[in-house]
Every structure is written in C-alpha cells, then in structure tokens.
Design a protein around this nucleic acid. Structure first.
Lengths: 198, 198
DNA sequence: GTACTAACTGACTAGTCAGTCAGTTTGGAA
DNA sequence: TTCCAAACTGACTGACTAGTCAGTTAGTAC
C-alpha cells in the first residue's frame, strides 16, 4: 500500500463530489465516507474545506496542463488551421474523458473563491492561459502559413473559440439538448470562422 | 401601497440573491431581511424554498420572453443575416441589462432541479426554446433571401451560436478576462461563420 | 361598531455542518 | 524491544438553517 494513499483518495473523492455537487452541497462527512476514513482525518491533511478545494483545483490544473502538453508532443499538424481544429477536438475529448475537471471549472464557487483567494486565482489563470495560448498559437501559425484569415486578432479569436467550446460543453451537460451531436458541426463552424477564404 | 408588494418584493430579492449567491448559499432569513419582513412571511407566500426558486425562474422566463418579443415587434431587418446579428447583439445587451436573469440560468441548481421538478424543467425549456428559435428563424430567413450559407443546418447552427453567446457572457462574468471587449469581435465572427460567401 | 378572513409575525424545533481536541494506532529507526 | 513522530480517530461543539405553529394585526363587508 502506497504511503499517501489516504490523502490522494480524499483528493480524488473531493474532486468528484465538488465537481458534481458543488462546494456547499458537499459535506466533509460525505467526502470522508466516500474515501472510507474518519471525518477528522481530512482535517489532518487539509486545514479547512476551502484548503481542500484549492488542492483539488491544483490537481485539476496539473492534469489539464499535462494532458495538453502530451497531446502536442505526439501530434503533427499540416497547418495552423488543422492544429486549431485538432486542439478544439482534443478539448472536447478531454471534457468527456475527464468530466469532473471541466465541471469544476464551471462551478461558480471556483470563481467566487478566486476573487478573495490569490492561490485559487493563480491556478484558474494558469488553466485559462494554457487553453487560450494553444488556440492563439495555432492561429498565429495559421496566419503565417496562410491557412488562417489575416484580418483576425488572434488573441480575441482564441478567446471567442474558447467561449464557444465551453458553451457547447455546458449546453451538453445541461441535459436540455444532446449537444454531443454538435461536436462535428462545431469543428466545421470553427473552420468557416477562421479559414483564409480566397 | 399596492396590495401584493411584499410578495413581489420577496420575489425580486430572491431573484437577486439566488442569481448572485446561488440556491444553497442563500438563506430564507437573508431573503427576508433584504425584503424587510419577518422570516415566516416567506413561507406564507411560498410553500418551500424550492417553490420560491421555481417562482423566481417563472418570472425570469416571463421577462426574457417578453423582452425578445418586444424587440422583434419594433425592429425591422434588411436580411436574415442582419436579423441574426441583431438578435445576438440584443442577447448580449439583455445579459448586461438584466444580469440576474442570465446568472440564474448559469446556476447548476437550476438544471439539477429541472431533472426532478417538471415545472422547473418546463420553464427552462421555454426559455431555451425562445432563445434558439429566434436564431433559427433568422437563419431560415437568411437562407431564403440568400444572405446565409445554404449548407448550414439552421437548427444546429442556432444551437452553436447560442452556446457561443452564452460562453462569452460566462467568460465575462468569470472576471478573468474583460470579455466586453469581445462583443464586437463576436458579431464579426458570427457573420464570418454563417454568411453566404460567393 | 362587529365579524370574518387574509396577511403577517416571534418563538421555536430538529437537523446539519465545519472544525476541534484529546487520545489511539501505526511504522520505522535505534 | 523501546521510543517517537506521523497518521488517524470518535466524540464533541457552536453556529446556522428550513420549516412549523399558535397567535396577532390589517383590511373589508355588513
């Protein structure tokens, strides 16, 4: 049995619960019972509930950054446009494969805490910077190789694409429409939005 | 003094609090003290806290539907494309002017309740139907008058545009970027995405 | 005035929750 | 074995919350 198994069990159970039920609706007792430990044990590893949440966010940040850097180490792209569309598709894929991560990023508490807790704010900014920079880099590359419309502001367009992808992920998890059917259409729409039409 | 002033005061205070603090983090005591009434009075007008929330959602639904129908009664458009872009701009405008409405629509509790409460679900569907239908109608019109790309599925594209607009509104309220600066860019991006390029 | 009802209230209850603390268990070093 | 610190625990507390209820007030019809 690995040494820090209980601490990491707490972390992963807390991730799941904070993501699916939210901060306030998740009780420490619940986290403890899911991790099969005594309630007080959590407070040995994490000073407060807020502290636990920030640790969860840190692990999410680490996960997201790692996944994206792995992806871009392995993949090769024929153009900036293809790289952008690949990044969008990978973002959508990650949001399905690691649903809790992106659920947590949609929780209001995350942003409310970021206002008063600088560490939380830093992790959040790191995550968004990672996501936006990938899109921006692809757009820059595409403007150089001619696959992306030259008139675009790459920064602003990167933000709009991020908002678009997030919006679709959100629409899906709202259970009102089956947005999964929209993933293909989203890629096509992105292409129409940024490609260099001659 | 109008007859139902206390009930409607409760409703508007609850709207504000549920939207900005969320359902769980808003206590009935808090609503009561903001409305300057005794705590028990709320339970005279609304059976439970959940009942109050559903009433709040109903008033938001009524407000959104009314605002959009007013807008389209007054405005005239030269093409389907212009109508679409006008609707997007008006959506963005409403999200600023009636911030609580759209904050409430981003709260997780709203969608969690919709799973178990059919009335809540109905109001939510009414709101989304209203928003999507406007975009879809504009796209249909644009395909007829030639201003919109004929290859588009108007339904799917309407959903994507809604996701995009919601995503931008969300990005703004997250306090990480000043997305207000993106409103103009968003309209331009929408145009590029759907216009009929010859 | 009287009678009646709708609107309203203060005091209360039963339950939940984050966090504390004094004490026990565990694992490894000497 | 002995010792020690880190890991862990059960029992507790004070603060807070949704909802109840018996009773009071305000408005209206006669």
């Amino acid at each position: 049995m690995p040494k820090r198994s209980k601490k990491s069990t707490i972390l992963s159970m807390a991730t799941l619960l904070f993501a699916t039920k939210g901060f306030t609706n998740t009780s420490m007792t619940e986290v403890a019972s899911m991790a099969d430990i005594a309630g007080a044990t959590i407070f040995y590893h994490f000073k407060t509930k807020e502290d636990l949440f920030v640790s969860v966010l840190e692990s999410v940040k680490t996960g997201i950054v790692k996944e994206f850097s792995l992806y871009f180490q392995e993949e090769q792209f024929t153009s900036g446009l293809e790289m952008l569309l690949g990044a969008v598709a990978y973002h959508l894929h990650l949001a399905t494969a690691n649903r809790e991560w992106f659920l947590l990023l949609r929780r209001h508490y995350t942003y409310e805490l970021a206002v008063v807790n600088p560490i939380c704010r830093k992790y959040l900014e790191d995550i968004y910077t990672c996501l936006v920079d990938i899109f921006e880099k692809a757009l820059d590359l595409g403007q150089q190789d001619g696959s992306i419309n030259q008139d675009l502001s790459t920064r602003k367009t990167a933000l709009i694409i991020l908002a678009m992808v997030d919006g679709i992920i959100q629409l899906e998890s709202n259970n009102l429409y089956n947005a999964g059917a929209l993933y293909g259409e989203l890629i096509v729409s992105c292409r129409r939005m940024v490609e260099n039409k001659q």
